[in-house]
Amino acid sequence: MKKPITALLVVLVLCGCQQKVDLAKVVVADDYIKSSLSYRKQGALVALNNDQVNLEAAGVQYAIDLSMLSGYDSGKMTVSITPSKGLYILDGNQHTTRPLVKGKIKLPYIVSASQEGRYYLYANVSIEHGGKNTARALTLIVQVGETATRKTQLAIDESEVNRKQDGSVNETIILLPATEEIIQ
């Protein structure tokens, strides 16, 4: 009795579209764009080994690695992973704690996207090292298919500020809400 219930629970907890992993159909992703270290703000000495992984098609299950570079030879690392909307983590530990080692640390996941597009795996990394705590947020781009640009909510026309002969100025502005109190 326990086994069917367990199986049912496993299926239910698979997020998003209630997919289950079919290992026979999982494709191992191998198209990564390597990160070149650039300026970073204060934070933990961890970085992604790759900026981006390219997956060919939507609706396919891919095995990917979230590969990190650690500058610590001791201590503890806690990682929480969240996918962006439309990307589903079908297998892999989304919250894990492990000992720190210097060099590469790989976290494997099986992911699938519902449609072509540009997605993200957000990783919150907390470090305990030498009695001190620090952290860093890392984000892996998951490009599914050939779509180069993430769909935007609004159609936007590119416009530069240009000053016309009558002195008027045409500029793109981003209109934000406010509460207003008028006393007359």
């Binding site: 935007t152 936007i156 793109t172 502005i173 981003i174 934000l176 406010a178 509460t179 207003e180 109190e181």
Partner: peptide
């Protein structure tokens, strides 16, 4: 906003007639 054509952020109040006397308009960006 670097994701929307580098547009400048602004907050606008309501378009209201100012009348003939001084008045007060307080705005808060939420």
């Amino acid at each position: 906003d670097n994701t929307r054509s580098n547009g400048l952020y602004v907050v606008d109040g309501a378009l209201v007639n100012v009348g003939m006397t001084n008045s007060i308009r307080n705005l808060t960006a939420t």
